[in-house]
Design a protein around this nucleic acid. Structure first.
Lengths: 243, 243
DNA sequence: TCATGAATGTGTATTTTTTACACTTATCAA
DNA sequence: TTGATAAGTGTAAAAAATACACATTCATGA
């Protein structure tokens, strides 16, 4: 398969436009990345405004075609870097979307990824082509291209579902953080307020916190202890895994 | 994209072998299906013996190329039907495998599915090309082709992890079943023995059982009541989702 | 310097859930 | 009629989750 075909009899234009030929039709394969972060105490997703048809003017998830020699995850990371400048994100595979009609240009199968990062890491976004990139909160999503709204919805649901049996929440915080900041992550994603003492008990039972010894002064009150995620802590995937 | 290219100047052989040409290289996309069932109180997986290279003589998961006008799930079901005769199975997407080197013939991205069915539904397998198809227990797996061993391992882990927050176990039983049969499913997949009374409490708390009113006589003892999964019962995906 | 305001940090009692555990019942076969 | 076998049931103890209130530390300003 995967033959690089150079038939000399083809007109010059055709040669450059259609070099890759196969016995059977093949779908295009892309990655789409749902990047979540917390901004102003709101869960926000990074979208790109499409310049061209189809869906010109609509907003889309970052992503693009998978290249021949990269893994799917590498492809997702590369596209994210190229389109948004982001490099330091946590990434996990979400689901693969393959409805035949999901892209009007033809068959495109997309492997969707869920990405999480603290806002601090995401400053590069501001440096990019600002007009075409923006963060959106759940309640104020723009019109989205393709089936990207569905992908986003699944990512949101997955994030919420995994909160209680994973350490995903920590991926939305900088390296060191206070107990209260961590609690806010759980509250915002879970959309419910939590009792301070019970929350601390819950986190401690995970056995993944490490004291830094540092504190943070934050105003006219007692300073908060700073913690980090212990290096021994895994991600607790799937209660093992994915869905 | 996805152009049907018919350049008349090509030699006859080439025309039939390479009709589909694209601007950029595209991976092939396949589905692979991990079909689990319970046979003789053992969790077993359906494999196909490969006749050709690569991996001639090795065993592989059923699956194959996704066609242009079918969804990924339809592709998985079609391949399963073509290769094994199975039609009535529960199917859910597992994970997408895309290591560049996973198939020596070239770039092949595989969307893996987890399938479950009661043994009763799986009789067609016997009718198929018997030499090339077989069921294997976990402890006696043959040498497997490609990365299919990894796919199988992930499916096994997912199945076990989802037992306690889904109704997947029911998909391994016929329409009506006894409490004890259901308990055996949990015990076999979870690899632990369970207390009869606590198990019954647990299942009842799910609120998905419907009495049929029938009983099953099974030997020199009290007959067991038969139940079915209530039609109102969902799958309890993901605590919503996948990983 | 002292009083106030504001967020940090801690423990216990109650409720709920999970676990451990043993005997009676219905049927078949001898 | 008796014995063997799997079905079916309830309660007490332990563990986990929940509800709930006050003392501590610091900054600020009177």
């Amino acid at each position: 398969m995967c033959i690089f075909y150079t038939y000399q009899g083809l007109p010059q234009g055709s040669l450059q436009k259609m070099q890759y030929c196969y016995d059977y039709p093949r779908p295009a394969v892309t990655t789409d990345i749902v990047v979540f972060t917390l901004r102003n105490e709101r869960l926000s997703v990074l979208l790109i405004r499409r310049a061209r048809d189809p869906y010109a003017g609509y907003w889309a998830l970052p992503g693009g075609f998978v290249e021949p020699d990269e893994t799917l995850e590498q492809g997702a990371l590369r596209e994210l870097q190229e389109e948004t400048g982001l490099t330091q994100v946590y990434l996990e595979q979400l689901y693969t979307f393959g409805e035949p009609q999901r892209d009007p240009r033809g068959r495109v199968i997309s492997v969707a990824y869920l990405a999480l990062a603290p806002q601090e890491v995401l400053q590069p976004v501001a440096a990019s082509d600002a007009a075409a990139l923006d963060w959106f909160e759940e309640e104020h999503l723009p019109e989205m291209a393709f089936d990207h709204r569905d992908i986003l919805a699944l990512a949101r649901a997955r994030l919420r579902a995994k909160l209680n049996y994973s350490t995903l929440a920590f991926k939305l915080l900088p390296e060191t953080f206070t107990f209260h900041e961590l609690q806010r992550v759980y509250e915002i994603i879970g959309e419910q307020v939590l009792d301070k003492r019970n929350f601390r008990k819950f986190i401690r039972s995970l056995n993944v916190l490490q004291e830094t010894g540092e504190t943070r002064r934050n105003g006219a009150h007692k300073p908060a202890l700073l913690y980090r995620l212990a290096s021994s802590a895994g991600i607790y995937h799937d209660r093992q895994g994915t869905q």
